[in-house]
Write a protein that binds this DNA or RNA. Structure first.
Length: 558
RNA sequence: UGCCCGAUAGUAUAAAGGUAGUACGACUGUUUUUGGUGCAGUUUGUCCAGGUUCGAAUCCUGGUCGGGCAACCA
């Protein structure tokens, strides 16, 4: 057997279960989102874990919507969740809903009442909260705790039949009001909610609580490993209590630490707030940590799966540096993205010894990382160019490998040019750079003998196409939002979006829209500027590119 | 002053009583027609105090620190 990557603690549990022949070696996991928001990168961790486990151990994974609270859930979210899971590259075995089990769950509740293990309580929410005591003081029974089984049965049926208004009664498990675990102090099983459900419509006016739905749903599906996040640890005894009392399939719950990431938030509540209060343009704003946001930004499914692999799975609270996510997308795109040239902050460069009106077609390979370069594209070369303003300096510092009077650089895929002079306007801004080129220095057939330190990108001014380019920075100004005081919105980075309306791109990029229609090569590396993805806002008249991430830059750091 | 979970380089994650390793970050060199990539290297760590043991990141005891738990949310 060859050297294997070490297992995370859940894989160890699964392997041990398989060794022991538990569940006949069967592995069935589930990904159980509540359809009340869009999925984010933290969900991706859970998705990769659940589906990954199944793939690794010959099992299956169900997609189950935990839809027990009709007032927050919508079909829109169901659809987006399915889209995102598929996009990440996973296929579920069954698409299921907790609401599929409402009848069964009702019968389970009746069974518990019949065993004297559940009762209908007429107390208000406040009264119940008060009667539960505190972590250090035991709770006290409410007046209804000792109702007869018959009465409970009748009342519960009346709850279901719509006899009572919202909040009038609840069904509670009869466990232990003094338990040190607050979740065991007679937890609520059902509440009355006259709300329209996105799937069951108006059939029900009572809905099960999470604790009386999740474990039972796992059990009904015969889930072997029910994986959730750390905050559910105190629920586990309750999860097991219901399964024991009902004597149904013993699914087991395991908990891991959720993902946190620097410079962003990861709670649906906060993300919803950013959307509702228009701090971002929507759930799929490219600055959002949502799957749809990352997708629109240009992240690939592979890069996200690799990221989830690298961050590992453990029980320790963590905050992952967003630079690891950035590493993952660079790693993927460096190998696959086609190279193009784009000038974001243009300044004119004039080649004084190149014939005006002449156009030469140069060849550039699409992908230098591929053996065959994945083909070439034509790049027109003329006497006037757009180059990046930052690639010229009036007074260049030492080790500045770009342009300044007397300095030479190679124009990528083209010739070496030497800067002779520059032109300024009245206010002192440089408006033009004048160079001479060396005809023998043509890329690929250079016989000039000249060697230069720098190579810069450019676009022929006569042939350039304009494009809109959107540059994104971190959404928040601080690394770890969880340790900051006050409203998280105080830390929003107001400069997280920069729109460049008139960038110049090489003409071949007009093909980007066609490429997109065949779903290929919609992501590019703009040489020296980063990785970019064509945005859905693009039209043939106005191409829009999102910067996914910059290239690593060892120069500007200095 | 309850119960539960956790603690290994800056950030994560391994080492199941026997050499503290890996990735990202940072830094250095090298290659390069992208100051990218690649390649080579450097850097930084077991929360504390006791105990068990030939030997402890690992087991035990006590402490410290961080997190969670008292929604008719999930």
């Amino acid at each position: 057997m060859s050297e294997e990557r070490s297992l995370n603690f859940i894989e160890e549990i699964v392997e041990e279960d398989i060794r022991n022949g538990k569940n006949d070696g069967r592995v069935l996991t589930r990904f159980p989102p509540e359809p009340n928001g869009y999925l984010h990168i933290g969900h991706a961790k859970s998705i990769c874990l659940n589906f990954g486990l199944a793939q690794k151990y010959n099992g299956k994974t169900n997609l189950r919507f935990d839809d027990t609270n009709p007032s927050t859930e919508e079909t829109e979210y169901v659809d987006s969740i399915k889209t995102d899971v598929k996009w990440l590259g996973f296929n579920w075995d069954k698409e299921l809903y907790s609401s599929d089990y409402f009848d069964q769950l009702f019968d389970f509740a009746v069974a518990l009442i019949s065993k004297g293990l559940a009762y209908v309580d007429d107390s208000t929410a406040e009264e119940i909260a008060a009667s539960k005591g505190t972590p250090t003081e035991p709770g006290k029974p409410t007046p209804n705790r000792d109702r007869s089984i018959e009465e409970n049965l009748q009342l519960f049926n009346e709850m279901k039949d719509g006899v009572y208004p919202d909040g009038a009664k609840v069904l509670r498990a009869k466990i232990d009001l003094a338990n040190s675990n607050m979740h065991l102090r007679d937890p609520l099983m059902y509440r009355i909610k006259w709300a329209h459900h996105h799937r069951t419509g108006d059939k029900w006016c009572i809905y099960p609580m999470y604790d009386f739905a999740h474990g039972q749903s796992d059990s009904i599906e015969e889930i072997t490993h029910s994986i959730c996040t750390l905050e559910f640890i105190p629920h586990r005894p309750l999860y097991e209590w219901f399964i024991d009392q009902l004597n149904i399939f013993p699914s087991k719950q395991y908990e891991f630490a959720r993902l946190n990431m620097t410079y962003t938030v990861m709670s649906k509540r906060k993300l919803l707030q950013l959307v509702n209060e228009k701090h971002v343009t929507g759930w799929d704003d490219p600055r959002m940590p949502t799957i749809s946001g990352l997708r629109r930004r240009g992240y690939t499914p592979l890069s996200i799966r690799n990221f989830c692999e690298k961050i590992g799975v453990a029980k320790r609270e963590n905050i992952i540096d967003v630079s690891l996510l950035e590493f993952c997308i660079r790693e993927d795109l460096n190998k696959s993205a086609w190279r193009r040239m784009a000038v974001l902050d243009p300044i004119k460069l004039v080649i004084t010894n190149y014939p005006e009106g002449q156009t030469e077609i140069l060849i550039g390979e699409n992908n230098p990382e591929a053996e065959d370069g994945e083909g070439n594209r034509d790049i027109p070369f003329t006497n006037e160019m757009w180059i990046e303003r930052e690639d010229f300096m009036e007074i260049p510092p030492k080790k500045f490998f770009r342009l300044g009077v007397g300095l030479s650089v190679r124009l990528k895929h083209a010739y070496i040019v030497k800067c002779d002079s520059f032109v300024k306007d009245e206010s002192g801004n440089v408006t033009e750079i004048h160079c001479t080129y060396f005809p023998e220095s043509k890329s690929g057939s250079d016989t000039s003998g000249i060697s230069v330190k720098g190579t810069i990108h450019w676009v022929s001014a006569q042939n350039a196409k304009t494009a809109e380019i959107r540059l994104y920075d971190r959404l928040f100004k601080v690394e770890d939002l969880s340790i900051e005081e006050g409203d998280f919105k105080n830390y929003i980075n107001q400069d997280s979006l920069q729109v460049i309306k008139n960038a110049f791109v090489e003409p071949d990029l007009l093909n980007a829209l066609n490429q997109k229609s065949i779903n290929e090569h919609i992501r590019y590396q703009f040489i020296r500027k980063g990785y970019f993805a064509l945005d859905d806002d693009s039209t043939p008249e106005n191409l829009v590119f999102n910067r996914i991430v910059t290239l690593k830059d060892a120069w500007t750091k200095k």
